[in-house]
Amino acid sequence: MGIIEYAVDFYSLLVKSYPIFIQATALTLRLTVAALGIGILIGLVFAMMKISKNRFFNAIADGYITVIRGTPLIVQIFWIYYGLAPIINVPAFWAASLALAVHNGAYIAEIFRGGIQSINRGQMEAARSVGMTYGLAMRRIVLPQAFKRCIPPLGNQFIIGLKDSSLAAFVTMPELFMTAMRRAANQPGNALEYYTIAGLYYLALVVVFAFLVKKLERRLDVD
């Protein structure tokens, strides 16, 4: 088969599979948004605990980051979906999202901590010396600057989170990767094409997202 014919065949497969893959993309996005939304909150809380002067909070944050960063995401997903099932029956969507959130939360916590600690100590001291409370100084002075510095690594982490959502396939979520696996099992002759198509959808999502992050970075730099 010539390359032109192959390209035509591939294109027709891409178009024919479009409705199913778009549906799957929507699920991938919902998983990612849920996971990263919760992940940011988790990250923020644990970053605060990690930089706090309270030893107890430090220990909790350290433990969390050590355990979560030290175990594979797929193990965490199975732990919540199959392991916890006899105790609490978490629906597949939430098992996957929560595992992703908890997992990304650990990395996001480290990103936030790095950002906050990169802000010169003098800023906090100056803010305190003009009478601001610790919380107010954190909110008004340190966090806004830290957040700006966090954007590039956060964008990076979001891209990782988006791609990691493919592991939800193993707890029955018909997202992009699962869709490709099902198509490939049904039409094994086109397995290569279907995995390529799934890859293209992820690539498109990442490219769009990376573009948005870049725009945001540029806007904040101007300020």
Binding site: V33, G37, I40, F93, R139
Partner: peptide, 20 residues
């Protein structure tokens, strides 16, 4: 920034619960 953050978090919460 705090407003942006607030909107972001609340927005996320809405999307998340909405999805749920």
């Amino acid at each position: 920034l705090p407003i942006m953050l607030f909107v972001l978090v609340v927005g996320m919460a809405f999307i998340v619960t909405g999805c749920g």
